Simulated scan of single mutants.
Amino acid sequence: MRSLRSVKKSKKYKKLIVFAQILAIWYASILSLSLVTSDTVAYFNDSKKTSFSIQSGTWWDGSKLTFVKHNTENIKSCEPHSITAQIKNEGFDMMDGTEYEVVYWPTDNRNPQHKGDVIYEGAIDPIGKNEIVTLQFEAEKEGSYKFKAYQRPGFNDNYDTREEIWSHKIMMNCKGKQEKEANSDVVEEVEESKEEAEIIEKEENVEAPIIEEEEINRKEEKEESAKNSKEEATDKSVNEEEKEVMETSSDDSLEEIVNSQSEKEGEDE
């Protein structure tokens, strides 16, 4: 009897154990399935976000480009001239480069709506935070020029269009230079004339004392000559008087001699 009871109890416990195992397996299966499903969803979501954020060139790096100078620049030149514009990154470091263009308007343009002609396209290397680089172009014609640069793709989370920034206006004028050169030539001529006048004045100032001295010498010579002439005239007058006296004396002497001879002859007779 005891053996039969023990056998029945053992069978009963075995059924409970099997049922408990089945129940545990079922719970474990449900738990595992729920965990696997949630992890898979999270995995795919994370994978989608990661693949979106690391694609090169499709997300904004936080850079912000701006041109440094804004006032119009006037260049007086008839020859090819190098024009420049400085651009600064006021945002974070650029992860990649960007593009820029040079836009030109001719001098005879009268259409204010004319957007200009793109005459050059170039590339800008990545610029670090607060760094400044200089864009350069060799301008060969009269007219107006501007540099146009593009912000990095996705600037301010705008992935549909590229934002543009413009430099200051650079005006190249040959006529202005010609007028300036003409004015400079006139100024040079005036200065040369002024210098010549100063030189002449200096020479006159130097020659004036010489001329005055020559006039004084001439005057003294005239006075001396007049004095000599007067003295010569006086001497001549004296000589003539002396000559007359001598002639008169000689005549008297001769008359006396003749008279004395006549008297002598009379006595002899």
Rank of each mutant, 00 (worst) to 15 (best):
M246W: 09
I119S: 05
N239R: 06
N259R: 14
G154F: 02
V133N: 04
V18M: 12
T37W: 01
E265T: 14
E232P: 00
S32P: 01
S262M: 09
N71K: 06
S250W: 12
T234K: 15
V258M: 11
N183G: 03
Y13A: 06
K69R: 15
A208T: 11
D185T: 07
G266T: 13
V245E: 13
K227E: 08
K88M: 15
N183T: 02
V238G: 08
S262K: 09
K227T: 09
R152M: 13
K175I: 14
D268A: 11
T98V: 10
F67G: 03
N259P: 01
N228W: 08
M246D: 09
G116N: 05
V190F: 06
W59P: 00
E142A: 04
E189H: 10
K180A: 13
W60V: 04
C174A: 10
G154K: 06
N205W: 04
Q55R: 13
L65A: 08
Q55S: 09
T161P: 01
D96L: 10
I257V: 03
K169V: 05
N89R: 00
Q55W: 08
K69V: 04
S32E: 03
I87S: 01
N259S: 11
Y120H: 15
E192F: 03
C78M: 06
N228L: 13
M171A: 05
I170N: 03
E198F: 07
E240C: 04
L33C: 05
T58P: 03
R5V: 14
A233I: 08
I199A: 14
I132Y: 06
E231H: 10
E192P: 00
N130Y: 02
I17V: 03
T248K: 11
N89G: 05
I216R: 15
V18I: 15
S237M: 13
I210S: 08
K219E: 10
V133D: 02
S167W: 01
G91N: 00
D39G: 09
Y104K: 11
W59S: 12
V7M: 02
E241V: 05
A24Y: 08
K48Q: 03
K230V: 01
G91W: 00
E203L: 12
E241M: 13
I75C: 06
I211T: 09
N158S: 05
K69M: 02
I119Q: 15
S237V: 04
E188Q: 11
E256D: 11
Y43M: 06
E204R: 09
F19S: 06
A197E: 08
Q55I: 14
K243F: 11
E265Y: 10
E220L: 07
I200S: 08
S3Y: 05
S77P: 02
E131M: 10
K227G: 03
E269V: 08
D125S: 11
Y13K: 10
E240P: 00
L254Q: 07
V18P: 00
K8M: 14
E241P: 01
S77K: 05
V190L: 10
N111Q: 01
S144T: 02
S34N: 15
K88A: 07
T234I: 14
T134C: 12
E215M: 08
E164M: 14
